[in-house]
Amino acid sequence: MVAHIRRSLISVVVITAVFGFVYMFIGVGISQLLFHHQANGSITANGSPLIGQDWAATKCPGHPDGSCVFHGRPDNTGPYAAVVCASNAKNCTPSSGGDNPLVANGVSGSSGATNLGPRSQTLLTNTEQLVAYWKGLGVDNPTPDLVTTSGSGLDPDITPQDAMVQIAMVSDATGIPASQLQALINKETHSAQWGFLGAPYVNLLELNTALANLG
């Protein structure tokens, strides 16, 4: 018994040192050396393409806010946070974890999903209001991704179809012809990795940066 306890205590110290700190410190060291950019969050001048941003508040002179850029999923954009709090009395302060992806856990940039079930009245109401929101912006047939939230609440990507349905809105606000926007989306579309892993996607930060460079 005593021998077991002594043995356990020594093991705990050695194992914590080797498999916790040595493993992680060497990991950080080599990662910083070999993959400096990725290891620090792939951060570019306008943010990280891996973390979604709120595009809905972008100022568009003479047009509704946000209509001159492509939007992401309602995680970080649109009226989602307000909708959740208006219709769901339970667990709905903006600082509570999980149900407000924009400020999950009360910290902007932290992760969280809505966790609403497939037969949730709240999810139905939210979706209806998001459809109305998109119609108000001039997107008549919003795609499923544009009215549902992601798993992380930080999804930086949309599908090519999600971008296509926004062409009329962006074209109207910027005056850039639809065909040119179509070509831009095609150019910015990443095909599935190795041709079949995951799904084709457009990174919003890349797309909107390219859009800004057009104008």
């Binding site: 979706t127 795609t143 499923p144 991704d145 939230t149 995951g198």
Partner: peptide, 25 residues
């Protein structure tokens, strides 16, 4: 389709997107 999303009038060809990341599908 996600039943709640379908009931709101959005019909999906890419499955149930609620809570899923675009890059994985």
């Amino acid at each position: 389709n996600n039943p709640a999303v379908a009931a709101a009038g959005v019909h999906s060809t890419v499955g149930n997107t609620e809570g899923k990341e675009v890059r994985f599908g």
